[in-house]
Design a protein around this nucleic acid. Structure first.
Lengths: 129, 129
DNA sequence: CTGGACCTTCCAGCGCAGGGGAAGGTCAAG
DNA sequence: CTTGACCTTCCCCTGCGCTGGAAGGTCCAG
């Protein structure tokens, strides 16, 4: 299976597949006599796994860690659990920060809708902020 | 007032101030005979305004828009309100996405804590994902 | 007169996940 | 035999908000 086929099957691009190989997420594929990459079917499963990892908001570096553990012959369960826990914690923190910011902005907006523009003094940049 | 002083007063770095000038957020300062930037006190107010804008999660490009309107002699009220509304909408969307993602990951994690590692088959990369 | 703190410009890079495009090789159909 | 689709490597670009460093000029105290 050539790279274009794999890209179509996986719903991605040839650029991305070469990039994954470059980043160590895909093992270097066999080559045809002409130097074309020749993928075995399990490459598709691997790319799908990468995409599932991305859906779970893991970075490529984290996905690579899982694949490395797995490629080393171990079952990466514990590692995956840890990563998911960590990611969940990060996510919660990020959500909290965004909620705080949302509050701040909502207050600014409320203030902005109450003030009459012509009461703005000239020596301020903006009294809403 | 020289750039280092302004940086200290505004709680930022000289690098950042030059960067702001480069990006059009700060007008080019007057220069001393030696070529040093020589800021008037209102530069501090302007930098503070930039920081307040950042606190409101506005991008530098958006803050620049406000400053440009204001520098053009108009009162940027409506513009600011629009930006705040837009930012609020973006933020809400972003928060929603993160919440969905959080749910997905939480489910994966729950699933991961129920499955026994030794039931993992060898031909999958990882059954948690 | 020397040292150190300050200033100038310019160039380069970060992290993330690729995308754009050049210059060239290869393969199958018509 | 040529066309067009595909493949190869290579290097640079994106957005965002800076940060680091090099090479040089300036100012003031001791």
């Amino acid at each position: 299976m050539r790279i274009g086929e794999l890209a179509r099957a996986a719903g991605t691009t040839t650029k991305t597949l070469r990039f994954y190989e470059d980043q160590g997420l895909l093992p270097p594929a066999e080559r045809t006599a002409a130097g074309y990459r020749d993928y075995t079917p399990d490459a598709l499963a691997r790319v799908d796994f990468i995409h599932r990892g991305q859906t779970a908001a893991l970075t490529l570096a984290q996905i690579r860690q899982i694949l490395d553990v797995r490629d080393g012959g171990q079952v990466p369960c514990e590692h995956v659990r840890d990563l998911l826990e960590t990611r969940l914690a990060n996510l919660d923190e990020q959500i909290q920060q965004l909620l705080v910011m949302r509050e701040t902005i909502a207050q600014l907006r409320d203030r902005a809708s109450q003030i009459e523009p012509d009461t703005c003094s000239a020596d301020q940049v903006c009294r809403y902020l």
